[in-house]
Design a protein around this nucleic acid. Structure first.
Lengths: 137, 137
DNA sequence: TTTCATGCAAATGATTTGCATAGTC
DNA sequence: GACTATGCAAATCATTTGCATGAAA
């Protein structure tokens, strides 16, 4: 079910701003900060306010349309299509590579067996060096 | 080499505040936020200022005496003795369990082979449910 | 026209910084 | 006594909130 449909089902309104934000998050394959989203939105519709961005992102997260994770000291957002996965984020060039959700299965099993700890690995951002930047050093 | 020795070697001064902060981080096996450290310090020496806590923590991090990681939307600190390891942090009770640094070896190998990505897993905080809290549900 | 969403401006809360004073070496 | 560290108060900076106005259904 599309985000738009979900919105309407809940009696929420499909405004220009919301449509824009949805578009931008879908179009950018990667992940964006709230401020980057604000910039993109304002490039198309000047006058849109920060609060709207934050409120809309929170809304979309609640609806399950968008995922929010932490990168450094701020939050980043990306669309929720294609199920769960993780991100490899290059420290040098900032590029982001998607990788599949099974990545942490061994780690999950290990902590469950050793400590009975039920770890949650959802949309983890993994910091490091991508192949290109690694070779350039 | 102890943190105190390192401090002195660099011509830095060993003040009451710095000694206190070091003690507290060493004594608490787990991890503390800057504010928690502030509370502990003020319990013993009233009048110590936030800025001092933050400045000292930054200093200790630079010296390699203390590690800083992110938990939720704030930073947490813990001592750097005993080498690298990760933390299992319970979402419910807040308890923290140390686990060894090899935990992510399979994940590291996987992303290296698939994408040539050199992942850095250092002092990762893993969120989830500890055995006690899991059973209480 | 009813209700929800937006813009604005001000609040928040963790962390940082400038500067005069106090403490360590 | 020289030089560093501290306390204080004010500044940052991302994010949040209250409220009157504007837009969608």
């Amino acid at each position: 079910m599309s985000c738009v449909t979900t919105l309407k089902k809940k009696g929420m309104k499909l405004t220009t701003q919301r449509r824009l934000i949805l578009d931008i998050i879908h179009d950018s394959g990667g992940h964006l900060t709230a401020e980057e989203i604000l910039d993109y939105v304002q490039a198309r519709v000047p006058g849109v306010n920060k609060s709207t961005i934050y409120r809309t992102l929170e809304l979309l997260e609640d609806l399950g349309c968008v995922f929010k994770s932490k990168l450094g000291d701020r939050f980043i957002y990306h669309h929720a299509e294609g199920g769960h996965h993780h991100h490899l984020v290059c420290q040098t060039c900032g590029k982001s590579i998607d990788c599949d959700e099974d990545l942490f299965l061994p780690a999950e099993r290990a902590v469950n067996e050793k400590y009975g700890f039920r770890a949650e690995f959802k949309h983890v951002l993994i910091s490091g060096l991508c192949a290109d930047c690694r070779d350039k050093t």
